[in-house]
Design a protein around this nucleic acid. Structure first.
Length: 270
DNA sequence: ATCGCGACCTGGTTGC
DNA sequence: TGCAACCAGGTCGCGA
């Protein structure tokens, strides 16, 4: 996309533009005629800085896709918006519409101010993140999913990182040693690198890259989606449980459930 | 200030 | 076969 000019913008559904408060027409008119200067990402936020100084910002939510298609290609079932560039179309496709698009005033967009660096970023400060985790009484999985703590980690990679490090996701942050937290962050980075090398995790056609291609990391998952199957480290059964409105998968033997969970906790001392 | 829950959506799968 | 319930990879805002 970089270097190409946006000739026309078509918005096919209003909902993905809910974060663009001035509305779809404003969205389209701001983009038309602008050239895409680069492509950026922080955590799960994506943006394309424009030569006018603004930026097209996107978040894919759960089911969103950005696809690069030839202009004449058949419209996807859940096509929500399309940008026409010289010889291609950039399409936003989203079944569940938890994803969104907007044009932000600046680059980096103010919308990503609260998003922390991700574990693969060269500037990622593991010591800083470890301190933040160890100051919290929240369960460590919740903290891994908190994009203001570290970004890019979602439900799958949190479960995989926790398994790799042998840590249960309900262990409160303040109960973990600095060493264990650093091992956990390194484990998450390792999982993310391995997933990236295989094109990500694709359970179905919803999870594809800009060329519509699926990744193969599902084959390498150790706990996620493996309820009742054998732990690849100890042979014990993988447990699935509901946690904060979503599933957590872990090995009870390799990742012991903290005894104190569910009981009254003493406030942490610093 | 921090924490945990429900809301926001559509559609595919499962089980009665 | 039909229908309801459940499930899904993410935030975000609210009340406690």
């Amino acid at each position: 996309m970089v270097g190409r000019q946006i000739d026309a913008v078509e918005v096919l559904h209003q909902r993905p533009l809910r974060r663009h408060l001035p509305g779809a027409d404003d969205f389209a008119s701001r983009l038309a005629g602008q050239r895409i200067a680069s492509a950026q990402r922080r955590g799960k936020y994506l943006w394309l800085p424009l030569d006018g100084g603004e930026a097209l910002v996107a978040h894919l939510g759960m089911s969103g896709q950005l696809l690069v298609q030839p202009p004449g290609a058949e419209p996807e079932r859940h096509l929500r918006a399309r940008l026409s560039l010289a010889d291609v179309e950039l399409r936003f496709v989203d079944q569940r519409m938890f994803g969104w698009l907007t044009v932000d005033e600046s680059d980096p967009p103010g919308l990503v101010d609260h998003i922390a660096l991700d574990p693969l970023d060269p500037a990622f400060d593991a010591d800083l993140v470890a301190r933040r985790i160890r100051r919290s009484r929240a369960g460590v999985k919740r903290l891994l999913l908190d994009q203001t703590v570290a970004s890019g980690i979602g439900n799958i990679y949190a479960d995989e990182g926790l398994w790799l490090a042998g840590v249960h996701g309900e262990r409160p942050g303040y109960q973990l040693s600095r060493k264990v937290v650093l091992e956990l962050l390194a484990a998450c980075a390792e999982v993310m690198s391995a997933a990236l090398a295989q094109g990500g995790t694709s359970f179905d056609a919803l999870y594809v890259n800009v060329n519509g291609e699926s990744g193969y990391f599902e084959r390498s998952l150790n706990v996620y989606g493996r309820e009742g199957e054998a732990c690849r480290r100890c042979g014990g059964p993988i447990t699935r449980m509901s946690f904060a409105n979503r599933s957590s998968h872990f090995c009870r033997r390799c990742q012991p459930v903290p005894r104190s969970v569910g009981r009254a906790q003493l406030a942490p001392r610093y």
